[in-house]
Every structure is written in C-alpha cells, then in structure tokens.
Design a protein around this nucleic acid. Structure first.
Length: 498
RNA sequence: GCCUCCAUCGUCUAGCGGCCUAGGACGUCACCCUUUCAAGGUGAAGGUCGCGGGUUCGAAUCCCGCUGGAGGUACCA
C-alpha cells in the first residue's frame, strides 16, 4: 500500500501547441482525481515556452476541453491563485527563471555554452563517422571559469545556459507507478548537458517546469510516461538547486488502436472537442478515460464521478500501456445515453438537430415539444448523439419516395406489394383514433391474415413506404408520430412508385 | 545503435506464492424476445498467463536470460 502524505498539490501543465487530445485529458484527469481523492489542490499551468510552436487560442480550447469532462482547477491562468501567474511566458518576462540559472552558473553547476545548433549537428555527425555509438554532448566551456564565460558573452556572442551533468556515477529516483521498489536508475554517462536557458533567454521545459513546480509547492508530479527518460535531469536540477524533489508518478501511455505507437493528434482523430461534436456525453468520456490506465477491481466499470474520486488510488494505476478502444467508448456512451431521462436526451440531441437544419435555432416551444415526442423512438438506439439527425430527419422533412427495390418485401413482387399497399392505405384511412399503437397494429394484423402475408412482409412495406428506409423506429409509434395524413400521403406516393 | 520502462483471451483489465481446471468488460458468434434496427436475456468460442531457465512442497504471481513492444536519445514539450 502506497502512503500518500496529505495535503497534496498537483498540476496539469500542457503546452498550447494545438487542441487538447484525449491523452492529455487523461493526464489532467488523473491529476485531478489524485487531488480530489487525497484531498488537495489541482492547478493548471500553461507551459508556453516554445515560441515556435505556440498556437493562439489553444490555451482557451484546452480549458474548454477540460471543463467539458468536468475537470476544474483550484488555481490557474484564468482564476489566478497565490502562486501566480500561471503562464510561463509571463513568468519568464517577470524574470522568474533567470535568477535560478544565475545561481547555478555561480555555483559552477551550469555554464554558458557558445556552441551553436549548427555546430552541434556537425559534431554529432563527426562523432558518428568516428564510430561513436552514442554522442553525449559536453560543451567545451564546461570547465571554463565563469569569468571567462562572461567575457566571451560580453562580446555579444549568443549563448545558451547548459546544465553541467556529472561525468560519473548514476542518478536515481522512485516512481509511484513504474520501476518497482528499486526505482529507476540511469548512469550519468548516458546524460548530456541539456540546455536550461535558450539563446533567446527563454527557459526550456526542464528548467521552467521545475522552478514553477517548486515555487508552486507541487508535491506530486503525475505526468505522461514519455517524461521518464528526462526525469534524471530533473532530479539533478533539484539537487543542484538544493530543493526537495516532488514524488514522481509516470502514467502509462495510451497506445493507438493498432498498438503501434502512442495516440497522436496528427495520426488519430482524438481531439477532445471532436467527441462532443460527435455526441459523446461528458460522463461517458470521464468514465471511459478513468479506465485508461486505472481500474478499481475485477468487475466494476460503470462508476459515477463521486465513486471514482472515492476509489481512485495511485497504487491501482497501471504500469503497462493502455490501448485506445473506440468500440468500448461507444458502448459506454450508449449506456450513459440510455440512463438519461427523455427530457435530458431531448435537450442533448437538440443541438445536433439544429446543426442539421431540422429544427430552428433558437428552438421554439412547438419544436421542443416535437423533439420530446420523438426522443423515445430513438433513445435506446442512440450510441452517439450525432446519429439523431439521420435517425429522425424523415419526421421533419419530406422524403423522396423509396425505390421499388427497397419497397418490395422478401418473397413478393411489385404487383403484390402494390396491391398490399393499396389495402393498407384503405385500412389505415379507416382508423379514427390515430393515437393508439394497439389500434393501428390490430388493423394491420387483420390485414396480414386477409392478404395471407407475414407481419414482417407487410410491416416492412409500410416502414419503407413512410420512412424510405429499412431500419427505423418501431412501426406504430412511428406512424403515430408521423401523423395520419403524412402517413397516408407517403403510402400513396409509394404506390405510385410501383 | 544506445538508455529506460513494460509484457494475462482479438482489445482493456482482475490477479500481488496455494481461493486459478485464470474472473469481468468490450468485440465476435449462436439462441431467445421481436414488425426492422437497437436494447434486454441466455449461452458459446477465445488465454499452454510472450519464450527459456531457476527459487519453492507449490509460480500468472519471486529471480535471471532472451524475445517483443513502447518511450527517450532537440536551444519541443
């Protein structure tokens, strides 16, 4: 059993380089769950130290995605907090990071490096040519006295500030989910002198996140597993700065459906906003994501938010990768949709009907009423709310008469189908009360006997005649919803086809 | 290549030395229900616990090796 010392402070620190994809949401979610379960704070921090990849508006999009699944934060760029600001570019401008780089420089634990990117590429190529299998950059300036470094810098030559990693020994850290009891250890000879401050003066991730985590009093770092390889640098930095390192927990990656590689926003259609656009319920997404890398026991999958918060412990987080499984998500979405009330479902599908121009925007009372009537017909058949328009369009707009091919039931021909439809038209015309499915059904069942047709044949012909499709809601409820005159008109049109 | 991590049905997972002739879910298939499609019900197929060695009275569970996969190897995060 892993003991977690409360109170706990965790953060989600995305970089605004595009929309938030589902893997990012999962990372945010686990941090949130961790904070809520162990009783602590969850904060949001924007890591926009990469000027080249920055995308305007991405930060807002990302917050929208998080709010959608129900993740809220106690401190963040939009709401502030005691350790703000929560945007790294702003912090950098305020000079938050430089003093610490300076401290390292003065202690001889970092150095000004005048090697350019071009020179570095060349050095690598040369090393490779000489048969050196792994090139680990150590700047020639690493052993220069600081005064000499400053002298060259004073000439106006551009420089970066690099971490001076130890030549020997190894670096070790513990991880709440990976590496077992012995933790993870790497030889320092595998490390290279990473850049801490770019030549633009902007800190690199390794520097910025670490300074911020310390200043913001982060106690636990739950992040995606791609960071384990650079954690040794972070451990070293904490030592050099004389700070107590937070506890690490590297979350398992979410692999692509085919298992080859991690889920990526470029190759996979997994941006968070895609899911609400297609009609996924936030609760379903929350529940599904919860199971991507975590499980409660051997049989419980459907859980409310409160249940997950209560049950989420770090020791039940998987160390092996999860796999993106859209079929499972779809199934779960169906479960959550079916659990909705008729009213809630009607509200949920309304935007989709509006987007398909089947109902006006804003909605008016009569259309709202109409949607309410129609919702029970498709409610339990819905797996994505976005399917609603195609399931319901023929209730709102005129349909082209179905083709003869679609209209003619099994073991029947055009003539017999036509004859049957004429009889159906007559029978239904005679129905006075157009409100009872039972009345309509008994009328048509009587006709089945009279014409010696199976219900499947006759009902099928009616279904196609009024909806122009073979898959539709239950027939009699559908006829009632359609109304008597529309039903009869469509049957009449179908007769004309044959 | 090198470094690190990971390894149970097609997929996700339960399992932390005897309860396992390995449990659940998704998916698949069959049947029932039935006017179509769903939903629901019942059931089936599907795993020599990646492979090979150990440790132990006993291993899916511990150790070692191998193999496979993923991640990292940027003045990106």
């Amino acid at each position: 059993m892993i003991e977690i010392s409360s109170p706990v402070r965790v953060r989600f620190a995305p970089s605004p380089t595009g929309f938030l994809h589902i893997g990012g949401v999962r990372t945010a979610l686990f941090n949130w769950l961790f904070a809520r379960h162990y009783g602590g704070q969850f904060l949001l921090r924007i890591e926009d130290t990469d000027e080249k990849r920055f995308i305007p508006g991405a930060a807002d999009d990302l917050m929208t995605s998080m709010r959608w699944v129900g993740i809220d934060w106690d401190e963040g760029p939009d709401i502030g907090g005691p350790y703000g600001p929560y945007v790294q570019s702003v912090r950098s401008e305020q000079g938050v990071y430089m003093p610490f780089a300076q401290q390292l420089l003065e202690a001889g634990l970092a150095y000004m490096s005048f090697t350019t990117e071009e020179e570095l590429v060349q050095m690598k190529a040369e090393a490779e040519a000489r048969g050196i299998k792994a090139f680990r950059f150590r700047g020639p300036e690493r052993d220069w006295p600081l005064a000499k470094q400053q002298e060259v810098a004073a000439t106006g030559k551009a420089y970066t500030i690099r971490l001076k990693v130890p030549a020997e020994g190894s670096t070790h850290f513990n991880d709440l989910v990976r590496g077992g009891d012995d933790g993870i250890r790497i030889n320092n000879s595998e490390l290279y002198d990473i850049v801490l401050i770019k030549k633009t003066g902007m800190p690199v991730y390794h520097m910025a996140h670490l300074v911020d985590d310390h200043l913001m009093k982060i106690t636990h770092v739950l992040r995606s597993d791609e960071w384990v390889a650079s954690t040794p640098y972070h451990v070293l930095l904490y030592q050099y700065l004389g700070w107590h390192a937070p506890t690490f927990a590297h979350l398992p990656p979410i692999l692509r459906q085919d298992g080859h590689g991690k889920l990526s926003k470029r190759k996979d259609d997994v941006s968070a906003n895609r899911f609400w656009e297609r009609g996924y319920l936030a609760d379903a997404m929350f529940n599904y994501l919860t199971l991507q890398g975590w499980s409660y026991d051997d049989h419980t999958e459907i859980m409310t938010r409160a249940e997950v918060v209560e049950r989420f412990t770090i020791d039940r987080v998987q160390s092996s990768p999860a796999r993106w499984n859209p079929a499972k998500l779809l199934d779960m979405n169906g479960i959550y949709i079916r659990a909705l009330s008729t009213e809630a479902t009607a509200d949920a599908i309304t935007p989709f009907l509006q987007r398909a121009n089947l109902v006006p925007t804003p909605i008016n009372p009569s259309h709202r009423q109409r949607i309410l009537e129609l919702t029970p017909l498709i409610h339990e058949r819905l797996k994505e709310l976005g399917e609603a328009p195609e399931l319901l369009d023929f209730f709102f707009v005129d349909i082209a008469p179905p083709s003869a091919e679609l209209l003619i039931p099994k073991k029947m021909d055009a003539a017999s189908t036509k004859a049957a439809l004429v009889e159906i038209h007559a029978s239904l015309s005679a129905v006075q009360e157009w409100q009872s499915a039972e009345a309509l059904e008994s009328s048509l069942r009587a006709l089945c006997e009279k014409l010696d047709l199976k219900p499947g044949q006759l009902f099928g012909a009616v279904r196609v005649a009024v909806s122009a499709r073979t898959v539709a809601p239950p027939l009699f409820e559908m006829l009632i919803a359609l109304g008597k005159s529309t039903t009869l008109n469509r049957i009449q049109s179908a007769i004309g086809v044959l």
